[in-house]
């Protein structure tokens, strides 16, 4: 991944992606045919009411879950053709993760957590890049600490640094600020914003906070397992406005 953003490449896309849980009476359509593209070097937010399928979409896109039908591509690779070993390798090399909580291995130091995907892969660490990332997240003096010696915000920043340091094709973040106070949340969000702008990183972030969504380039709105709307260059106000509309739709079906 470089800062070259001249050609709008597709980092990941889904074609008619469906995910159905259970059968018969207990059948739940978590995703009902989603087609979406994530352009490289863009920051996309996914919003929607609880239970709308945001996490499911992310898990399917991120090779953590299999789809019921449809296709998912990371770069040019179609996921359904891969076996478990290849999926693992794909996650390791091409995808970065930031979860809402439990992001770090408690027995490893911050530095070890950050380099974990590279270490697992046995890849060499690009020293300059590592220093750049650390400087950006502002963790230089915390590298030797174990997770339980770090604040929640610091932990999430370590998770961000881990996602970035292996320079993946795409980073998926599922409510990364969901457990943080607003100051720490702002730190993390602006850091994600910078990594897109300055390093050309591709990020897909699930959130239900309009303020968080405002940091993105584009917002996708999900409802009942379908993409129902899309907004580019969002602001918190515009997103909130749109959200209210959905809530109203939800109330009067």
């Amino acid at each position: 991944m470089t800062t070259d953003t001249s050609s709008p490449r597709t980092a990941a896309r889904a074609v008619d992606l469906a995910k159905i849980y259970g059968t018969g009476d207990t059948k739940v359509v978590a995703l009902g045919g989603v087609t979406v593209e994530f352009t490289a070097g863009r920051y996309t937010a996914i919003m929607g009411p609880s239970g709308s399928g945001k996490s499911t979409l992310m898990h399917c896109m991120a090779a953590l879950d299999s789809s019921t039908s449809g296709q998912v591509f990371i770069g040019d690779t179609e996921l359904s053709e891969l076996d478990d070993r290849e999926l693992t390798r794909l996650r390791r090399d091409k995808i970065g993760f930031i979860f809402q909580a439990f992001n770090l291995v408690p027995t490893l130091t911050a530095r070890e957590n950050i380099t974990l995907p590279l270490d697992i892969a046995g890849r060499d660490i690009d020293k300059d890049w590592f220093d750049t990332v650390i400087a950006t997240v502002g963790l230089a003096d915390r590298l030797g600490h174990k997770p339980n010696q770090l604040s929640g915000g610091q932990q999430q920043r370590v998770a961000c640094a881990r996602a970035l340091v292996s320079q993946p094709e795409i980073i998926f973040a599922d409510e990364p600020t969901g457990n943080l106070d607003s100051r720490s949340g702002t730190e993390v969000l602006s850091f994600l914003r910078r990594s897109v702008r300055e390093f050309g990183q591709t990020i897909v972030m699930v959130t239900h906070d309009p303020n968080a969504a405002a940091y993105s380039d584009r917002v996708l709105f999900l409802a009942d397992g379908r993409i129902v709307d899309e907004m580019t260059d969002p602001t918190a106000e515009k997103v909130l406005e749109r959200m209210k509309g959905f809530d109203a739709v939800g109330q009067h079906p």
Binding site: R91, F97, F99, F102, V105
Partner: peptide, 16 residues
Amino acid sequence: TREVGLLRAVGLSRRQ
């Protein structure tokens, strides 16, 4: 369990 899930998510293979 959670930790194992995390490790697997960030690319630790079953064999590892």
